[in-house]
Design a protein around this nucleic acid. Structure first.
Lengths: 201, 201
DNA sequence: CGACTGACAGATTTCAATATCTGTCAGTCG
DNA sequence: CGACTGACAGATATTGAAATCTGTCAGTCG
């Protein structure tokens, strides 16, 4: 039952690091703290992660991947029309971010610091999300619901356009009274732009 | 000819404050510095501005108003179609911000700090800009070029959608290779959404 | 043998003393 | 009289010495 006798794995280190970050915040969480929480010397942590930055990047990747996986479920759900899937996907992204920021602001601030440190991991996450959006738009083009000469370009445009509702830098406006209406109005406008349409006079 | 003998006006204080901010940056610019630059005691500065925060807010307002005025010229230009006006207005906003950030990054960083301090002044500026957008969209609805049940709602949606290309928080991505294409793709999508259209089959 | 330790050098952070700044106001000077 | 000064109290920022941390590695122990 004593956890100190278990093998030291990267997984256990990541869990301990999350806990230390939750407790102390990003500015004060040290590798020594993580080692102490695990009952080992800090040299052992460096056996699994070359630097403190690499350890923090791994924690960040884990956190971002949890969001990606939830959304991937919507992306792959062929029981919904592409338009519904796009609406639901964007709403789920907004809702997930808003909940994280609202439920535990300190932890959210911690992850904002972490994502600000690790360009590479964030780039990959954004590429994953725009990839999912691309697949939804491609499905819409295939079904005739959408018009998009280049689905990837449209996907990036939609992702940029909705930045205010998923970029952590905007988290302070997510709880403002009109936020939900603003979000809906924006998604309506974007869907009007994506939908197949015959030109007007 | 000696400037120290001229009357001390709010205007002269604002100019001196801009200069001090340019020289020392937002963290080190003090009211004492401003007074020294003007050859007066700092008590005299407090005669015109109740607090240091009010002085900085006044400088910020001046800076933001310069952008608003340039754009107001496009808003009011009835020789262009509403669609062209909207494209030009958004492009001018992006270009103005990108130039400011690129030409003098330190000064731009200074104003980012100032705008972060003064919620009220920034709110007014944003209300002014969305007001201009509203008028352009109203003109488009009047001419039959646009469909928009509520032009103000659409204007806010367009402003939010283009945040990545005018919000200072994104300035670091404005010089990236694909930025101009990303901007164009986004504006194209938004205009498709605004244009009057007959429903597709 | 190989996972782990602990002492170490250089880098970074903390902390408390010191200096500077903000905002006020009684008093000066033209 | 009224614009301006300069000394002041409390708040904030700077500084440098001491403490802690990061990353390494020769050595221990099962």
């Amino acid at each position: 039952m004593s956890p100190t006798t278990e093998t030291l794995t990267a997984e256990r280190i990541l869990e301990a690091t999350e806990e230390v970050l939750r407790r102390h915040g990003p500015a004060k969480a040290t590798v020594v703290d993580v080692a102490r929480a695990l009952g080992v010397s800090h040299g052992s942590v460096y056996r699994h992660f070359r630097t403190k930055a690499a350890l923090r990047a791994a924690v960040t990747k884990r956190w971002l991947d949890r969001t990606s996986e939830t959304l991937a479920g919507i992306t792959a759900d062929e029981t919904r029309t592409p338009e519904t899937r796009l609406r639901d996907w964007l709403a789920a992204l907004f809702e997930a971010k808003r909940r994280k920021a609202g439920d535990d602001p300190e932890l959210f601030a911690t992850y904002m610091v972490l994502t600000g440190e690790t360009g590479e991991v964030v780039e990959e996450h954004l590429a994953d999300l725009t990839g999912q959006l691309t697949r939804i738009i491609e499905a819409g083009v295939a079904s005739g619901a959408f018009t998009a000469p280049d689905p990837r370009t449209s996907a990036v445009a939609v992702f940029h356009a909705t930045g205010r509702f998923h970029d952590p830098g905007y988290s302070r406006v997510w709880e403002r009274p009109g936020a939900q209406q603003d979000f809906t109005a924006l998604v309506d406008l974007l869907l009007r732009g994506l939908r197949a349409q015959s030109a007007s006079a």
